[in-house]
Each structure stands twice: as C-alpha cells, then as structure tokens.
Design a protein around this nucleic acid. Sequence first.
DNA 1: CGAATGATATACT
DNA 2: GTATATCATTCGA
Length: 192
Amino acid sequence: MILAADFYLRDDVVRISRDLLGKVLCTRVHGKLTKAIITETEAYAGVTDKASHAYGDRRTKRTEPMYGPGGTAYVYLCYGIHHLFNVVTNEEGVPHAVLIRAGNPVSGLETMLRRRNREKADKKLMPGPGTVAQALAITTDMTGTDLRGKKIWIEDHGIVIQESEISAGPRVGVDYAEEDAARLYRFIVNSH
DNA sequence: CGAATGATATACT
DNA sequence: GTATATCATTCGA
C-alpha cells in the first residue's frame, strides 16, 4: 500500500527519517518499474539546521519544493554529477526533508543493473544517495512532484525494523555545518 | 587520494 | 546581465 499523506505531515522530521527505513521507494520511468527498500536516511531540519539548504529561511527556486506540503519530492543536482532525492515532510511552509542515502533492490533489478552499468547485484549497486537516484532513474525533473504520482511513490510493505537493528550517527559530507554536523540525524539499517 | 562536472547562489558591473 | 565559488558525491588509482 502507498504511504498516506499523514505519514509525511507529522512535525518530527527525525522520527520520519527513522520510520522511512524499511519502506519501499518505487519509480516508473520509460515504462520500467523499479523498487528499492530504503536502508539509510538523513534528516534535514529546516531553517535552524546549518546543514540544510533551507538554513536561515533561504527560500530560492531550488529549495522551493521543500516549502511545499509533506509528501513532495525534492531532487537536486550535486557536484554537477549526482541527483540526490529527498522526501519533504511537515506542513506546507516548513522546509523539512529526509535524504534517501541507500537502498536494496526489490524489483526491476535488471533495469537497475543496466542503469548503473553493472553485472551483478552487489554492495556497489546502491551504496550512496547519488547511486540510489541513478538506479531508480530519479532526476531533477521530478522535483516538486507529489510522492503519490505516476512516476514516483513510496509503498509500505509492512516491513518492521526493530530498534535494535538501527544505528544512528552523524550525517555525511556536512562538515561545513559547524555544531549541527554532529547531530545524530543519520539512520542506517544494520546488515548492510 | 584527487579529479570530474554543472547547476545554483551570491556578489559584483 | 555576467562572473565565480561552492557543493547533502562517486569512481578509479
């Protein structure tokens, strides 16, 4: 079943990041259906978080989707090469988001392998946020679209991740964020 | 370890 | 309008 709006509209982005572990991210691009279970996430807590693009209420054309209602996609190009996919949370006007950092294939494996230019499904299939987006063909033209659309959506397969299987840690690649860089906003499912 | 690579934000003219 | 610094990274040595 597809995740309902009230899942995204809650006001605790850190809690939503943790709850997204075990959910299934799905895309249908060029007629190809691909699904991946989410195994790693990071929370970005809006205007007060120095690691967030929306820190200091910097509302620009790029960050605009984060100001939309929870359940919207925020995709942008990083380092000129990689598309990074985020789930917008909280009510409209509050720019909270969750970065999807890693996943495991559920279906459409052949398509993902081809997109990633790999032979076998190994640990290098989706080890980071850029590669997840590449495997699922997520691009910036999906930014601002609803996560219950025809091209991209998130399903709940009833998979329950126990607290004991989750590790929390500091976020990656945000050294510039000073004291906010140390926050435990990253969640990983063990057995990666 | 370090190059690749381009959109975007910001600070100029 | 034009210029330039800066990235929520990846891959191959």
